[in-house]
């Protein structure tokens, strides 16, 4: 396990997303409307769609390819679909806004 500094909180728009690559894993970082930052593997459990490109609604992201809904906390696809993506622990420094991912 290692902690990685990936960027600053103001580099991601609200209800937006950015990507980062750590140890050959593509990761999508999302900033929810309440400024919380969450990270999941950037690969939809359906057919590998880039989740970073999807629309963020509350705590779920809609995959841009076929509209599966992925819960960003649990990584689980929501009913009626079935599947799961890896989630990563995120910390945000409250003072300088640095974002860290542990993996």
């Amino acid at each position: 396990m290692a902690k990685h500094l990936v960027g600053k909180i103001n580099e991601i728009d609200r209800k937006g997303s950015r990507t980062v690559r750590i140890q050959d894993v593509d990761i999508a970082l999302f900033k929810l409307s309440d400024e919380e930052v969450l990270a999941v593997e950037n690969k939809c459990p359906h057919k590998g769609g880039a989740l970073s490109e999807g629309m963020v609604c509350g705590k779920v992201v809609h995959c841009p390819l076929h509209d599966w809904k992925i819960d960003l906390y649990s990584g689980k696809a929501q009913e009626p679909d079935d599947g799961c993506v890896t989630t990563f622990a995120v910390e945000v420094d409250p003072v300088n806004g640095s974002i860290f991912i542990t993996m």
């Binding site: 902690k3 990685h4 500094l5 950015r18």
Partner: peptide, 15 residues
């Protein structure tokens, strides 16, 4: 424009 680019290279802090 930033939204079209990935975040800059990640920096590993500790293990």
């Amino acid at each position: 424009r930033k939204n079209f680019e990935p975040l800059t290279e990640a920096l590993t802090i500790n293990s």
